[in-house]
Write a protein that binds this DNA or RNA. Structure first.
Length: 539
DNA sequence: ACGTGATGACTCC
DNA sequence: TGGAGTCCCTCACG
């Protein structure tokens, strides 16, 4: 029996049984279990009828009744009431035509027709192979005594060992074998060439109008959508290569997909790997070694995919969940790693296996995000619950380290915080209170001044991970974020709050892109959704 | 039967 | 107690 399900099988959930809904006042009545509402975008609903129309109809009805009573007939054998009814119908039709309601209705039918998700990328047949179990017969039918099951203690419910899907991968290097290729699970040789290719095409920053026009030229097309992982995308990144678009995505069950747009290996250029056993919370290509991709997982492992060696190396491995990391040095060999319990470890990859690590329990609160200052790399910013603080790595203590600077003003929990990519003079935070905030961190005082607070709906609900605003690494002061509003879109803001671009597409982009990223060298962005698909807009 | 995708459901303090 | 915090877990629909 799958212990994970225990929690979700309360007896009250049986159909038709009244349950007490949480959040409803104690005195309120019991109601049936709520059905999960399907979200219908307001923009697609037919426009509400105007009040004056209703009034008109009411008046017409009144007149009709009055006339009906007269029972007058004409030469066609129709009563006055019938005639008036026909006239009303004619007038209504004319009115509805005049306001294009029929056209709108047709459009609505077309637009609400089920959009077919892209069939590019991973094929359906690659869903996990199900274990074939022998036919079962209940103990009752076998006339046997029922087994007695005991639940593990509540506090231990989630760490029940067993043959579950989340069994952690063995420590040490894992061979890099694509699991979506039928046979000869070897890497396509072109992948190494592709990964090694990094022409340092450093584009200078553009002025804002030039930048906007560049964004305006970026398009999505059918070949720029593909299923890259099987489950909900938790993290994604672009490879720095400027000659081809190579992307990585990490999913909820520990898989990492590599997608090279336009290649024909794997499934439409997608290769799928399984270096972890639980959500891949953070992914980043090494900026110094372009054949390496670092991936971090809730299963407590941090691995380095190395295409040259064709392995997922073990970089850091602990018994509890890891949440986030960032590179600490330009050579990307040292990392700041944050875990679920507010600890930060400094990991040095030059001593593999026994990575040098030092623990600094910043706070018992859950840590959400770390980001290292791009120039003064002794500073890093940390988000945990409602606090965002900047720490100096040189003055970290084993416990209760004092931050250098605080970024105040958040009223709910914070999902991300990032130093601006070129100067570090800004920090952007995303908060559950529906605000994206930009702080001035050019001079690290005890409290960083808030420059701008941008209103943005962060309420993604279940199944969709929280939105995070991230900077464009090419353009200081511009950031990208997904959106839950309809039509679905990916938006680019200037730090001043000005909306620079809204990437939309009726047919190809119709799901929430909870993970978004800019390409480090090219004019391209990506968005990842909850069914493992990546969407690319590029020039 | 299974892929899809989301304004839910649960726990903690 | 209910608001806040979490996403480790779900499930209706086509």
């Amino acid at each position: 029996m799958d212990s994970r399900r225990l929690k979700h099988q309360p007896a009250e959930k049986q159909e038709g049984t009244p349950i007490q809904i949480k959040g409803v006042r104690k005195s309120s009545r019991t109601v049936l279990p709520p059905k999960r509402l399907r979200y219908y975008p307001a923009a697609l609903l037919p426009p509400r009828r105007q009040r004056n129309i209703e009034n008109d109809e009411d008046e017409q009805d009144d007149v009709s009744v009055a006339e009906n009573n007269k029972e007058i007939t004409n030469d066609k054998g129709l009563s006055a009431y019938e005639l008036e009814r026909l006239e009303n119908i004619r007038q209504n039709q004319a009115f509805l035509s005049a306001i294009n309601l029929f056209q709108a209705s047709d459009e609505l039918k077309r637009s609400s027709a089920k959009l077919q998700p892209s069939q590019r990328g991973l094929a359906r047949s690659h869903s996990e192979v199900k274990e074939v179990l022998p036919p079962r017969k209940s103990l009752r039918l076998q006339n046997k005594q029922a087994e007695v099951w005991t639940l593990p203690p509540e506090s231990n419910r989630w760490s029940v060992p067993g043959p579950d899907l989340w069994a952690k991968k063995p420590a040490g290097p894992l061979s890099m074998e694509p699991i979506n290729m039928a046979e000869a699970s070897k890497l396509p040789p072109q992948l190494l060439r592709l990964c090694s290719d990094v022409s340092p095409k450093q584009m200078g920053e553009l002025n804002l109008s030039k930048y906007c026009s560049t964004l305006g030229k970026m398009r999505i097309s059918e070949d720029k959508v593909a299923k890259v992982v099987m489950d909900h995308i938790f993290s994604a990144a672009f490879h720095p290569s400027s000659t081809s678009l190579l992307m990585a995505a990490g999913d909820q069950k520990g898989k990492v997909g590599l997608w090279s747009l336009g290649e024909d290996w794997g499934n439409d250029g997608v290769l799928l790997f399984e270096p972890h056993s639980r959500s891949v919370g953070c992914l980043a290509f090494s900026r110094a070694h372009s054949t390496q991709l670092l991936s971090l997982s809730y299963d407590g492992s941090l691995r380095c995919m190395d295409v040259e060696k064709a392995v997922f190396d073990d970089v850091y491995n602990v018994e509890y969940g890891l949440k986030t990391f960032d590179f600490l040095s330009h050579d990307c060999l040292t990392l700041v790693v944050g875990d679920w319990y507010g600890n930060v470890a400094i990991v040095d990859r030059r001593t593999p296996g026994t990575s040098h690590e030092s623990f600094h329990s910043l706070d018992p609160k859950v840590l959400r995000c770390v980001s290292v200052h791009p120039l003064q790399q002794q500073y890093f910013v940390v988000a945990k619950n409602r606090e965002v603080s900047i720490y100096d790595i040189r003055s970290l203590k084993k416990n209760e380290s004092q931050p250098v600077c605080q970024l105040n003003g958040h009223s709910l929990s914070i999902s991300s915080c990032f130093f601006s990519p070129c100067t570090g003079n800004r920090v952007v935070t995303s908060c559950k209170d529906n605000r994206i905030r930009v702080y001035d961190t050019s001079s690290l005082m005890s409290e960083a001044p808030l420059l701008k607070s941008i209103s943005h709906n962060m309420n993604t609900g279940c199944g969709v991970s929280t939105l995070s605003a991230v900077w464009d690494p090419k353009q200081e002061n511009c950031l990208i974020v997904g959106s839950v509003s309809w039509p679905r879109k990916v938006q680019v803001f200037h730090e001043s709050g000005r909306l620079l671009q809204s990437f939309e597409d009726d047919e190809l982009l119709y799901t929430v892109q909870s993970v978004t990223a800019f390409h480090p060298t090219r004019n391209a962005i990506l968005g990842g959704n909850s069914s493992g698909r990546l969407h690319v807009f590029s020039d």
